[in-house]
Each structure stands twice: as structure tokens, then as C-alpha cells.
Design a protein around this nucleic acid. Structure first.
Length: 478
DNA sequence: CGAGAGTACTATAAAGTACTCTCGGTGCATTATT
């Protein structure tokens, strides 16, 4: 049996599929040729099947680095559902004894899920260095760039960890990365460029209609939001940048629209978060008003609309967030509501997450303690101290980071001010091939109103040519 | 930076003004206490 016959046999036997989805076979094939791979596939594009397949195509343990404990749990459940028992999530939820036992029998597992923080512990890393690693997978690999420098620094150590594990075959997976981000990711790993295989699908999601609106005041924005949530049927997410506002808006929308609305943010305990996700999945909730905490791992394919009440921190995040809509390939809406000045909250958040020069100097001089500069900031500084960075190096590092993030935010603001041609703007930002394919040009059938589930009073206009869509939406938005 | 809540002031009293204060995202892991 040659390589491709074997791949198809495993696909059929373990997953029950006859054909691969775009990119899957190419990436698996490259990994089997001992290349390292970067796979950029849209959310729901079947990324996890790639590393699942690898577990059955060659010996050794597939190690999957995952950013969230909840994602690990989901994966374990999914593995168990398909009858795979040789899988474990190694996390802080495990007690010390159990952890010890797992680390001493790592070879027994076909799949191990782990966070970068856990993997970066000395004893843990040693245990992994002693086993045969089938593939070293980094899921949501863009987090190396977005979270590494100022939020979860252990992400920055993944290239070093990869080296300490003896350069096992590497697989980076993400749904959203510009060309520059892809290059940045690959260059961080100590691997010759010719050993990389890149499969990057377009970030374009033609079934998601993009619409931006600039409003004068917050009151106008509230009105708009209410109208939209009232009128667009189906499940949706409203993104905001503050927990408090998420609570307030959820309450308001519940009363003004009569729909089932709830708030979701990092301030909720795990039980509440889990419950909300389940209710949303089962359509017991229509709309979630959320901060950026909501999204990763939300595996609901019929989300019809994403409304941004605030800006995302950059366009990559924005793409991630709107990309959660319309995974069933039915038409969906992404609406960005912008009041000039909205960016200030994002500027503040990025500013507040990084230590100032004085803070840095005083903390390193031990003139102030962790509590007075904030424990999060202190941990970040401690990380860089452990890497033997001096004061000035850190100051310039954070300065650079401020600049990079400000520029990324500025692109988000520029986008928010665009009245039209949004798709091409985004695609150009991602260095994607510009396309004429748009909501308007896909043809009416794809966006049949009944399929979209838009309001009944518009259903009569079902037969309108699709070019009239913007007008219809304008009316809807009045 | 600025929105929104809270407070003080004015002085027929009430409601308006001006001021101060507080708060604003994403999560891993771990430790020492009630």
C-alpha cells in the first residue's frame, strides 16, 4: 500500500470519510515526508483531523499544544467519542500523583494535549524529551505572536521547547494569519526554511456579508444594536471591550428585544461559562454579548451574525471573531458599529498591559513590589528577567511592542472607517488574492432570504437580484 | 483617554453645574491561607 492508499484507508476506517477536505491530504503528506508544516485553514476546515490522522499513520505520541483547558477537554471528548482511549490532557486540573504517573508513562499515549505553560516546566519537558514524538502540534499557532510578548510569555518559548525536544516534526495550525505573520511564525523556529511546507487557504469567507457603520453617538449605536438584534433571526454574538458593558448590554437587549440574551466574559466562573456555551450551542440562548473571552473553540456552525459594538484589538482578531459566523456556509452578517473615539478603550488596554519605563526601573530596583505594579505585569517582567534581559532591553522591547500593537490597532480603525469595498480591504491586509467574489456577486440562490432567515417582511423580496442586497440591508438597518 | 457614577455645592428650593473618582481584555499554573 503506498502512502496515499494508506492515508485514504485510515481516513475511511477511523473517520468514516471518503475524501479529504482542502489542505488536509497535502499537509499530512508533507508531514509524512518529514517536513514541518504550517497549515492555515478556516475555522471548521478540519484542522484537528490532520493531527488525529498522524496518530494512526506512524508510531509515536502526537503532542498537541493547546491554549485553553476547555479546548483540551473538548478534544479529549471528541477522541473518546470516536473510540480513541489512548489520549490525555495534561493540565493543572490533574492532581500531582496522577500527573507523575502520566509523565512516567507518556509513551503509552497516542495523543497528549498540553498547555505551553505546563510543557515549559523542567520535569515535564524532560519527560517529553525521552519519548518518540510523532508530531509536535501547535494549535491556534497565531497565539505565539498575539499572546507571547505580553500576555502568556511561555508561548515565546515554544521554539526553544521544540529544540529541546530534539526537533520533532512540527505542525503549526491557525485560521488567521497575514503573510507577514506566517513568515514570522516560521522564522521563530530553528528549522531551515526549505524544510517547511505551507498550506495557506484564503481567509476569505464569501458567505459572510461585511457591513460597517459610523455613528455619531453611543445612543445612536445602542439604537442600532437593538434594531439589529431584534430583526436578524438566528444565533449571534455581540462583541464589546468591557465586562461591565457586556453585562449591561445583555440586560438591555433582553428587555428591548425579548430575545434570549446573556453576557459572557472572563469574570465568570468556569461553571457559568460552560453553561452559557452549552445553552448557546443548543439554541436556548440566541445572542451572547461577549468580550474577547468568547470564541475559541465555539463549535457552532449556524451562527448568523456577529456585531461589533467595539473594535477588536486588530484585524487578525476581527477576522477570528467574524469567522465564527456562517460555518454552515449559509449567508451570515458581520456588522461593525463604530463611533469615532471607540479606539480609545483599546489604546488604553494595550497601554495598561505593558509596564511603563518607570515601573520597570523601580520594580527591577526592588523599590516597589509586584502588587503595586500589578501581578500580571510583574510576572511578565519576571519572565524577561529570567531570560537575562536588562532594564534597557526590556524598555525597548515594550516600547517596540506598543508601537506594533498601536499600528495593528490603527489598521482596525482605518477599516472601521471604510464605507465599502470591505472585503478587498481585508484581503489586501492579509496579502490574500483580491477577489471580486462578494455577497453581491455570489448570486441570489446562495443568499435566499429563507435560507438566511432574515425577517419575514423581507421574504417577499426573495427574488430580487443579489446586487440589491445593500439596499435591503439599509432598509433593515433603519 | 474618557465615560459614567458619585459628591459637593448653591442657598427660597430644586435641579443643574462642576468637580473627583473609578474603571476599562485575553489564561495558564501555583501557593499559602481561612
Amino acid at each position: 500500500m503506498n502512502k496515499h492508499e494508506k492515508m485514504h484507508a485510515v481516513l475511511k476506517e477511523k473517520f468514516g470519510f471518503d475524501d479529504f477536505r482542502p489542505g488536509q491530504a497535502e499537509i499530512i503528506s508533507a508531514l509524512l515526508e518529514n517536513k514541518n508544516a504550517l497549515g492555515m485553514l478556516p475555522t471548521g476546515g478540519g484542522k484537528s483531523l490532520i493531527y488525529q490522522m498522524m496518530g494512526y499513520l506512524r508510531p509515536g505520541t502526537v503532542v498537541i499544544v493547546t491554549p485553553l483547558l476547555s479546548l483540551m477537554q473538548d478534544q479529549v471528548s471528541r477522541f473518546n467519542y470516536m473510540g480513541e482511549k489512548s489520549v490525555i490532557a495534561l493540565s493543572s486540573l490533574m492532581d500531582a500523583q496522577e500527573k507523575y504517573s502520566v509523565l512516567h508513562h507518556l509513551n503509552n499515549y497516542r495523543f497528549v494535549l498540553i498547555s505551553p505553560e505546563m510543557l515549559n516546566q523542567e520535569a515535564v519537558l524532560k519527560a517529553f524529551a525521552n519519548i518518540n514524538i510523532n508530531t509536535f502540534v501547535i494549535d491556534e499557532a497565531h497565539t505565539i505572536l498575539s499572546w507571547g510578548p505580553d500576555f502568556r510569555p511561555d508561548y515565546l518559548d515554544l521554539p526553544l521547547i521544540h529544540e529541546q525536544l530534539g526537533f520533532p516534526p512540527l505542525l503549526l495550525l491557525t485560521a488567521t494569519a497575514t503573510k507577514a505573520m506566517q513568515a514570522d511564525l516560521m522564522q521563530r523556529f530553528n528549522v531551515p526554511m526549505e524544510q517547511w511546507y505551507v498550506y495557506a487557504q484564503s481567509v476569505d469567507r464569501p458567505n459572510i456579508y461585511l457591513h460597517n457603520e459610523v455613528l455619531d453617538t453611543n445612543a445612536d449605536k445602542d439604537d442600532r444594536l437593538t434594531t439589529l438584534v431584534k430583526q436578524i433571526p438566528g444565533a449571534g454574538i455581540v462583541y464589546v471591550s468591557s465586562r461591565k458593558l457586556a453585562n449591561t448590554l445583555a440586560e438591555q437587549l433582553k428587555q428591548t428585544t425579548g430575545r434570549h440574551v446573556a453576557a459572557y466574559h472572563g469574570g465568570l466562573d468556569n461553571v457559568a461559562r460552560y453553561r452559557l456555551q452549552q445553552q448557546f450551542m443548543q439554541n436556548d440562548l440566541d445572542v451572547i454579548v461577549a468580550t474577547s473571552a468568547f470564541g475559541m473553540g465555539i463549535d457552532k456552525d449556524d451562527i448568523r451574525f456577529i456585531i461589533h459594538y467595539h473594535l477588536s484589538q486588530d484585524l487578525a482578531s476581527y477576522m477570528q471573531e467574524i469567522g465564527r459566523a456562517g460555518r454552515d456556509n449559509q449567508a451570515a452578517l458581520a456588522v461593525l458599529l463604530y463611533v469615532p473615539g471607540d479606539e480609545r478603550i483599546q489604546y488604553h488596554l494595550l497601554d495598561a498591559s505593558l509596564p511603563t519605563d518607570t515601573m520597570l526601573a523601580q520594580y527591577m530596583d526592588k523599590q516597589i513590589d509586584a502588587a503595586s505594579i500589578g501581578v500580571e505585569r510583574a510576572r511578565l517582567i519576571d519572565y524577561y528577567i529570567a531570560k537575562h534581559l536588562g532594564l534597557e532591553q526590556m524598555q525597548s522591547l515594550f516600547k517596540e511592542r506598543r508601537i506594533v500593537r498601536s499600528q495593528a490597532l490603527q489598521s482596525m480603525v482605518n477599516y472601521a472607517r471604510q464605507p465599502e469595498d470591505l472585503r478587498n480591504y481585508l484581503l489586501q491586509y492579509f496579502d490574500d488574492a483580491p477577489t471580486s467574489l462578494d455577497f453581491e456577486s455570489v448570486g441570489p440562490a446562495a443568499f435566499n432570504l429563507n435560507v438566511v432567515g432574515l425577517p419575514a417582511q423581507l421574504a417577499a423580496k426573495n427574488s430580487l437580484p443579489a446586487q440589491h442586497w445593500p439596499d435591503i440591508l439599509k432598509q433593515l438597518f433603519k
